[in-house]
Simulated assay, not measured.
Amino acid sequence: MFIQVLIRSVPHVSGRSISDSLEHFFQTNHPNHYLCHQLTMERQRILKDPKSIISVAFVSFNSRWGAAVCAQTQQSQNPTLWLTNWAPESRDVYWKNLSIPFVSLSIQKLVISLLVFALVFFYMIPIAFVQSLANLDGLEKVAPFLKPVIELKFIKSFLQGFLPGLALKIFLYILPTVLLILSKVEGYVALSVLERRAVAKYYYFMLVNVFLGSIVAGTSVYFWSPPSCARNQ
């Protein structure tokens, strides 16, 4: 039985290959539990270019305790080198993210966090607009020049009964794909983690926009558009 740890940002040492650097590092720092390592490479290019080997490896340990020490502790004085995490199963690895450098990874996570924040909170604007279409009195008050068009029977039925639901369904249909793409850009190396992060983003989006946003939008439209009986008095 062996336990694997994912090693990223293996430093390049002059006159020594990545494999030799890994062997020397773990035989020096984890001599009692280190077994072997397996380098990650770009499989389609490795036959043509030996430099396709990237500074990422799956390191095997002979005990869970030794693997835990390696995976959960800082391995170097430089926090951007010898990054360690529990290794996902081979079928769960998202290979494209393995070679992302530490600095780029941090920047990508920050940018994606800002994008998700903007998506969650500013997406309420189209949601509120769609919600307002269900109340034609409010729409006529905001845009009185549309009143002749809205009063047409076909247009009125379409706006009240069909368009709001269709627009929301289209928004929510494409949303999971967008969130999964954003999670991939964040740099996670396990497909299960990518899916979990996308689901978490989807949950916050639904909570803020569909639930709270619909309540706020509906209340605002009702507040600014009193019932017709009240206007006629």
Rank of each mutant, 00 (worst) to 15 (best):
I3R: 02
Q4A: 11
V5H: 01
V5C: 01
V5F: 01
L6E: 01
R8E: 13
S9T: 01
S9A: 15
V10T: 03
H12I: 01
G15N: 10
R16C: 06
S19Y: 08
E23R: 13
H24G: 05
Q27I: 05
H33N: 14
Q38Y: 11
L39Y: 04
Q44I: 06
I46H: 14
I46P: 04
K51V: 08
S52C: 03
S55K: 00
S55E: 10
F61D: 00
S63R: 03
A67N: 04
V69G: 08
Q75E: 08
S76I: 08
Q77S: 12
Q77G: 15
Q77T: 14
N78W: 08
N78R: 02
L83H: 13
N85L: 08
W86V: 11
S90L: 14
V93A: 01
Y94P: 00
W95Y: 14
N97S: 15
S99P: 02
I107V: 15
Q108W: 06
K109Q: 15
K109R: 15
V111R: 00
V111K: 00
L114M: 09
A118P: 03
L119S: 07
Y123L: 06
I125G: 05
P126H: 02
I127S: 06
V130C: 06
L136Q: 14
L136D: 02
L136W: 02
E140N: 12
E140Y: 01
A143I: 10
A143Q: 04
P144C: 04
F145H: 01
I150E: 04
I150N: 04
E151S: 10
L152M: 10
K153M: 07
K153H: 11
I155D: 00
K156N: 15
S157C: 03
L159H: 02
G161W: 05
L163A: 08
L163G: 05
P164T: 06
L166H: 04
F171K: 01
Y173A: 13
L175F: 08
P176H: 06
L182V: 05
S183R: 00
K184M: 14
V185D: 04
E186H: 03
Y188K: 07
Y188S: 11
V189I: 06
L191R: 12
V193I: 14
L194N: 09
E195Q: 13
R197Y: 08
A198V: 05
A198I: 03
V199Q: 08
Y204T: 09
N209Y: 06
V210F: 14
F211T: 11
S214P: 05
V216R: 00
A217I: 12
W224D: 00
W224Y: 15
S225Y: 09
S225T: 13
C229H: 11
A230G: 03
R231A: 09
